[in-house]
């Protein structure tokens, strides 16, 4: 039987993400990377978390009405919850398909919108869940197991 004390919360913080501002997009992910570095976590693990966070943040900036990214660091895992306040994804299965994109020409000219974001998020995280409702928003929960690195 696992004791509750085995899963200890070491750090938590929530970062707001503004929609549409590509110049500042990624700032929350950079802050998250710095926090994990200060906590002395392995650099390859930090890179996995940072890349997944960055892709999630870019999705939120490009496609959503804005929201937040919450970081929870435990002794054995890191959980990232990216939650926006709309407009929601009508066909989640299609949105998750590698290469599928609805990005504007401007977004493409900035180097994003190739439809690789969710693939990168899945590749970098140990578990991944997405709940989306049109008119309400999208909640992405990512888990990274520190012991599995």
């Amino acid at each position: 039987m696992k004791l509750k004390s085995e899963c200890k919360l070491l750090y938590e913080e929530c970062f707001p993400v503004t929609a549409g501002n590509l110049e500042h997009a990624g700032e929350a992910s950079v802050k998250i990377k710095r926090i994990l570095k200060k906590l002395g976590i392995d650099s390859d693990f930090i890179k996995r978390v940072s890349i997944a966070c960055y892709e999630a943040e870019m999705n939120m900036v490009i496609y959503s009405c804005g929201g937040s990214i919450k970081l929870e660091v435990y002794n054995d895992k890191v959980i990232v919850v990216a939650e926006d306040c709309g407009p929601g994804i009508a066909d989640v299965e299609l949105a998750l398909r590698d290469g599928y994109s609805t990005a504007s020409d401007y977004v493409l000219s900035q180097g994003f919108g190739a439809g690789r974001g969710f693939s990168n998020i899945k590749r970098c995280s140990d578990s991944f869940s997405i709940i989306s409702e049109v008119g309400k928003g999208t909640k992405l929960t990512l888990c990274f197991n520190i012991s599995g690195t």
């Binding site: 500042h24 997009a25 950079v30 890349i51 960055y54 180097g111």
Partner: peptide
């Protein structure tokens, strides 16, 4: 090596070391 000229190039470099 990139032909892109945006803030996101620097942020991508920072994120991926």
């Amino acid at each position: 090596l990139t032909g892109l000229n945006s803030h996101q190039v620097i942020r991508t470099a920072e994120i991926s070391d």
